[in-house]
Computed example of a mutant assay.
Amino acid sequence: MAKVAFLGLGVMGYPMAGHLQAKGHEVTVYNRTGAKAEAWAAEHGGRAVATPAAAAEGCDFVMACVGNDDDLRAVCLGETGAFAGMKPGAIFVDHTTVSAAVTRELSAVAAEAGLGFVDAPVSGGQAGAENGVLSVMCGGNQAAYDAAEPVIAAYAKICRRLGESGAGQITKMCNQIAIAGLVQGLAESLHFAEKAGLSISDVVEVISQGAAGSWQMANRYKTMEADTFEFGFAVDWMRKDLGICLDTANETGASLPVTALVDQFYKDVQKMGGGRWDTSSLIARLRKLG
């Protein structure tokens, strides 16, 4: 068992930190809104502190799951940042979905300070975090990954190292690119069935057993049919992730025409007031169009 700090207690981080504590690790938490950290400590029995540096002090591993590049820099750097409190040889594990550029930047800073750094974005959404069955895609030094993997296992269904620093973030981009087109296709399929006068449930029962079947179809078609979008990953966060994908594609020369199109469809959903709706809300856009 290890001494672990967890920075960021949103819909993902809160249950992830809980799994670490439940597995017997000694967990200290930090959250920008201190009341949430105190609530977590009251529920799980860990310890809440006021700064990332205080959380990291004496820990073997520091996990983070925050919002974006700037949020990650804020919890890592400066006098109150985690790097300032970490002991030599400790390993920072970043579960945030951020750019590969900021990952490589912070990994280099960590290495200069004698710290390990693993980029380890996750897929599986809030339900995956709550049930401890996330897919974790990692980049970084092999030795740092090997040390961190048994700790990550507290909330992972699968955890793999894909390469050096930034490889985990690139893989998460692949994940989001695949999801974007898939959800739009599902939304169009269900909308088409609806407009043709067919039962969505009956259609899905049949086509889900063939090549069209997917996790999104199995887990979201009922809520899409009901025009209810209070589940899973928010549109605002998806647009942030797709922006990272598109920026990286410009840097690498990759062509992402479908991703770029779906990003604009999500922009339309935001204009409808759906920024906090889950990503399956693409069907609401189609219904509005008629």
Results as ranks from 00 to 15, higher is better:
G213T: 14
Y221E: 02
R47E: 13
Q264S: 13
G85R: 14
A41E: 09
F231I: 06
G78F: 14
A167P: 07
A234C: 09
Q169M: 15
S99M: 13
C138P: 00
L246V: 12
D202A: 15
V118M: 12
Y145G: 00
W40I: 11
R239I: 10
S165T: 10
R32I: 04
T228A: 04
A129Q: 08
V29F: 02
Q209N: 10
V11F: 01
A156N: 00
E130W: 03
L115D: 02
R161W: 08
S255D: 05
E130H: 07
S199Q: 07
A284Y: 01
P150F: 11
R285K: 14
A218K: 13
M272K: 08
T97G: 06
S280Q: 05
E225G: 14
L198R: 06
V136K: 07
I283E: 00
F231N: 01
A17T: 00
F6N: 05
V262W: 02
F233Y: 00
G8C: 06
L261Q: 14
A41P: 08
V183G: 00
W277K: 01
D119V: 05
I91E: 00
R161N: 05
A55H: 06
L289H: 10
G274Y: 00
G213C: 14
V151F: 10
G273N: 05
V4R: 03
A144M: 10
C174Q: 15
G232N: 02
S255H: 09
H19R: 09
V29I: 07
Q21P: 01
G8L: 07
W40V: 07
A180T: 03
R104K: 15
K222N: 04
A100W: 13
A178M: 10
T171V: 14
G81Q: 11
S281G: 10
D236H: 15
A196G: 11
V93P: 01
G139W: 03
F265G: 04
L7S: 06
Q264W: 06
E130D: 08
G89Y: 06
P15C: 07
I91G: 05
S165L: 09
F6T: 06
D71V: 13
G273C: 09
Y155N: 01
G45Q: 02
V4C: 06
R73E: 05
G181N: 02
